[in-house]
């Protein structure tokens, strides 16, 4: 036995929450993107664990998809960061406040 399913889920949950905290707490756009990456990765861990637990390959297949989404998201996200950095000379999320009510 490698681990119990519970332990895999706890690991995955911890990493996910760390990513969420990162996305919510950091003000740097790049760090927010990093937080999102961490969260996606954590979901991957849970899926791989579940794939082993039920001996079904679909979990691993979904990790492939997640990786593809992450790649797409990062490429567009970073392009956006570059784009906005050109405009505002800042990568601080708080300097974008046109939506303020």
């Amino acid at each position: 036995m490698i681990a119990t399913m519970n332990e895999v889920l706890i690991l995955s949950g911890l990493v996910f929450i760390l990513g969420a905290v990162c996305a919510a707490a950091r003000r740097n756009l790049i760090m927010i993107l990093v937080g999102v990456e961490i969260m996606l990765n954590a979901a991957g861990i849970a899926l791989v664990g579940a794939s082993l637990r039920w001996a079904v390959l679909d979990g691993q297949v979904f990790v492939i998809f997640i990786m593809a989404f992450a790649a797409a998201e990062v490429s567009v996200g970073l392009a956006l960061i570059v784009f906005s950095q050109r405009r505002t000379k800042s990568v601080n999320a708080d300097s974008f406040s046109l939506l303020r009510g």
């Binding site: 969420a20 303020r100 009510g101």
Partner: peptide
């Protein structure tokens, strides 16, 4: 209530997290 809509990404992310 207006202070909720700060227009800042971090607030919105925080709120998203809070909802979760």
């Amino acid at each position: 209530i207006r202070f909720w809509t700060t227009g800042k990404l971090s607030t919105y992310l925080g709120m998203l997290f809070l909802g979760f």
